[in-house]
């Protein structure tokens, strides 16, 4: 890992991000959602599942979507190959790009949580869960971005990611019973496990989120290796 190279990629991506109208609007999605939820709650305390939907919206609509679009664009325009052909390592490239996404994601998340109430998240296990969730959504974005090969095709993946992983607690709103198979499967999803961490102070749930992150890391690694050579 080389700090100078990571900084170079970070600096380039920040400039590119500021000039990309499609990406620059994404961090406002969870903020607007938070403002709407606060208005609906009429000053009352929001249920914990609603708070985690804000978290899920931030990570899916900001973290995953921005990373997905950035990687797909690098892949489509062949600029990623230029980075790979330079002395920058895979880690330098991914960390440099991830820092931009982290900066934007955490700014958006912080503002959103300040609007809806940040207090429920102020304990160690919840913070760890939030960080693991971020890593999961980030790696998912990298993998899908490289897999989809073009910016246009990422739109086909953004919605499923948002609904499956970003808005998982909304499954209750579909009227599916808690004992149904769909609910049981959804219960293992990372955002639901983060709610379990909050409600039960569970280390097991943190472990499950970590497993999801490892799975996403393997997926991202395979996609990156496939993209960076022509074999």
């Amino acid at each position: 890992m080389n700090v100078q190279r990571i900084h170079a990629i970070f600096e380039k991506d920040i400039k590119d991000f500021m000039k990309n109208m499609m990406l620059i609007t994404m961090p406002f999605i969870p903020i607007v959602l938070s403002l709407m939820y606060t208005r609906f709650s009429d000053g009352g305390v929001l249920p914990i599942s609603m708070l985690y939907i804000i978290v899920g919206a931030t990570y899916s609509a900001v973290t995953s979507s921005i990373m997905m679009t950035m990687m797909a664009e690098e892949n489509e325009k062949k600029t990623l190959r230029g980075l790979v052909q330079s002395p920058a390592s895979y880690v330098d490239i991914l960390v440099g790009k991830s820092l931009v996404v982290a900066l934007v994601s955490f700014t958006s998340l912080l503002i959103s949580l300040l609007i809806v109430g940040i207090d429920p998240f102020l304990n160690l296990k919840d913070v760890i869960a939030l960080l693991l969730l971020f890593i999961f959504f980030l790696l998912l974005g990298i993998g899908i971005g490289l897999f989809s090969k073009s910016v246009a095709s990422t739109s086909a993946y953004i919605m499923p990611v948002m609904f499956l992983f970003g808005f998982t607690p909304m499954i209750e709103a579909l009227g599916i019973g808690k004992e149904s198979a769909v609910s049981q499967v959804a219960n293992v999803f990372p955002l639901m496990q983060a709610i379990h961490v909050h409600e039960n102070n569970s280390w097991v749930s943190l472990g499950i989120i970590a497993l999801w992150s490892i799975g996403a890391a393997v997926f991202a690694y395979i996609c990156f290796k496939k993209t960076t050579t022509d074999d």
């Binding site: 100078q4 190279r5 900084h7 170079a8 990629i9 600096e11 380039k12 400039k15 590119d16 000039k19 990309n20 325009k77 062949k78 600029t79 190959r81 230029g82 980075l83 052909q85 330079s86 002395p87 920058a88």
Partner: peptide, 26 residues
Amino acid sequence: ILSDNSSLYERLSIYDNLKLFCKLYN
């Protein structure tokens, strides 16, 4: 390397594109 896989960052200036590679190559 200059090949059919070479490309540039379209939204950045010529200077910013070359600056990136100056830093990557130290």
